[in-house]
Design a binder for these strands. Structure first.
Lengths: 244, 244
DNA sequence: CGTTAAGTTGAAGTGAATCAAGTACCGTGG
DNA sequence: CCACGGTACTTGATTCACTTCAACTTAACG
């Protein structure tokens, strides 16, 4: 189900960001920023930075994808999202100077440009308007975090959590076609790490959904065949109206 | 354990915010802002706004406390935090125009000033520097959300979750004294809603901690008597080194 | 002093983690 | 082309922590 490590899937992608940092900057500010960037290629599965580290630079994902996660010492991991090209990694921390909240790791070979925190801060001094863009970025991160808190905190059953994730993923790829289909490019293990369940439970719940004719799986393409019912499962209507 | 509904506890408070929106504004901007405010008194247990609503104004908590939560249709609730005086409620939503992420409800009689979204936006046009403050506010919210995601997503057992919460609360009140004691002013039910467990489990786990001599409870004052051990429980070192 | 909300405690039920064993898939090299 | 090794996925059995339910005690407050 995972695609080859060398290819970057081009189907529906998990985390489309409505607003992007750079689009709202003036052309002048943008070229100013570009002069600060240093480009680099990273192989897959490279740790870009670890949660808790003091930020020394900010990264801009140019090509590839990066897994953003929170980790425990025991090896448990919670995936917050998958960063896509044009996304800025570590923006909040770089600006505030506080330790990184999350860990970033490349999933495929990535092209990434970096700007030292020093340069980044002085850029903001030259272009204070950029704070508006930064604000918008963090707002988005915050929204996503709240959404995930809903999944982890309110959706008690694994079914509800997975249903929510699938619907969220499906909604994410609506740019190309607002269809009920999208490509899963995470392993069951990683899916489990998104919603805080075990690998096996993901398998079982996904099968369960198929048997109930809520979804169909063709290779790594998932089709939501009964969105209403799936939403009923996802629906934060947990208490006791369990769909039979 | 809950204090009287008319009195606002003055002990260690849960959610101290390092930075505040207004302190970083110029005196001129601040008085400009004040001219936009409309003050109001609200009784306890008043819904200030609901998650999903379209923001029409921004609120500044002047006196009292407000519970910030995420709710499900089924009545399940996840408490994100308790807002204290000087905190701005709904800032992100008011600026972006997106629906409120959370629900805000007064816990005690509150004095709250409000600024219409219209006025708020024009204030930002007049004082674009305020975006820097807004950025800092959202960053803090984001950090808190990540912290809670750690608790909900990585700390599997109820013990770990509660231990984390207690340590967090204890750390919050370090301004007055960095002591190992603080006042609990939430009910067991509300504590459960902070960490996603049931009321009964909070009781049991708290008793368990006392029997293990990790904490002591005197009225509504909690003393952490064995911080190391408590941190071991909290410690995101879950896998299998369960402290015996 | 009586009413209501909060806390306590036990017993039963359950969803999901864990453990274990096996299968499918895929790229590699013989 | 097939054997090989590694990874991902599947499936069943067992276990356990927590929820739920229920009955009860305690505390708070007019």
């Amino acid at each position: 189900m995972r695609l080859g490590c060398e290819t970057v899937p081009n189907g529906a992608l998990q985390c489309s960001r409505a607003a992007e940092f750079f689009t709202s900057l003036t052309a002048e500010a943008r070229s100013d920023f570009q002069s600060l960037e240093i480009h680099n290629d990273y192989p897959g599965s490279t740790i870009l930075f670890l949660e808790g580290e003091t930020p020394s630079r900010v990264l801009i994902l140019r090509e590839g994808q990066s897994k953003l996660s929170i980790n425990s010492i025991g090896g448990k991991r919670l995936i917050l999202g998958i960063a896509r090209p044009t996304e800025i990694l570590g923006l909040t921390s770089a600006l505030s100077g506080n330790p990184y909240e999350v860990t970033a790791e490349t999933m495929y070979p990535c092209n990434i440009s970096s700007v030292s925190r020093q340069d980044f801060l002085s850029f903001f001094l030259r272009h204070p308007v950029a704070y508006q863009s930064a604000f918008r970025e963090v707002s988005l991160d915050y929204s996503r975090a709240c959404e995930q808190l809903r999944t982890l905190g309110l959706a008690i059953t694994a079914q509800a959590k997975l249903a929510r994730l699938l619907l969220e993923w499906c909604a994410g790829g609506h740019e190309t076609e607002r269809d009920n289909r999208f490509t899963i490019f995470l392993t069951h293990e990683e899916i489990g790490e998104c919603i805080g369940t075990s690998r096996e439970t993901v398998t079982r719940t996904l099968n369960d959904f198929q048997h109930r004719l809520l979804v169909e799986l063709h290779g790594s393409t998932l089709v939501i065949s009964n969105r209403i019912a799936l939403e009923r499962y996802a629906g934060i209507n947990l208490t006791r109206d369990r769909a039979s």
